[in-house]
Amino acid sequence: MSFDAPTIVQIILGAIALLSAMTVVLVREIMRMAIGLGVFLLSVAGLFLLYGASFLATSEVFVYVGGVLVLMLFAIMLVQRSDSGRAVLVSRHDIGSASVALGLFVMLTVALQGVSNRFTGSAPESSMQELSEVLMGGRLVQYEIAGLLLLVALVAVIVIAGGDER
């Protein structure tokens, strides 16, 4: 493996992603967890950019950092009690969960050995035109169903979270 510039960037971004994911999972303060999630999503967007999926990187920043993370911060601020700053993380299932995650990691790594990732460091940029042709051509049905799903989720959120005076 040659350590050229894209490989080094890949390793750095991957290390940031791993560390911030561990922050999300392990840290106790909820606000710090949210900050860690933001760093994690930004590093994933950087990896998308490195792999040539620039439109996905942009949508990742818009949808996740600008949408889901802000929504999560609002939810935290709405429900935060004065004593819930430090979440109790001591779980009886700590060792079992760690072994499940570790076993899954080994299993997936072994299963994905055959996958040849031919990333050469210079992934060709994807073009918006081809992506829109795919979305509006062969995957039109999925696209419309996704729009319908968003509408259903919107109505469900209004029903669930709003109007609880009954």
Partner: peptide, 26 residues
């Protein structure tokens, strides 16, 4: 292979978090 390894590791970290965290936001 680095990208696939990182994604598998991230997925497993998420599994650990789902199994151990006690707060709904987590």
């Amino acid at each position: 292979m680095i990208g696939v390894l990182v994604s598998v590791a991230v997925f497993c970290i998420g599994v650990y978090g789902v199994l151990t965290r006690r707060d709904i936001v987590g």
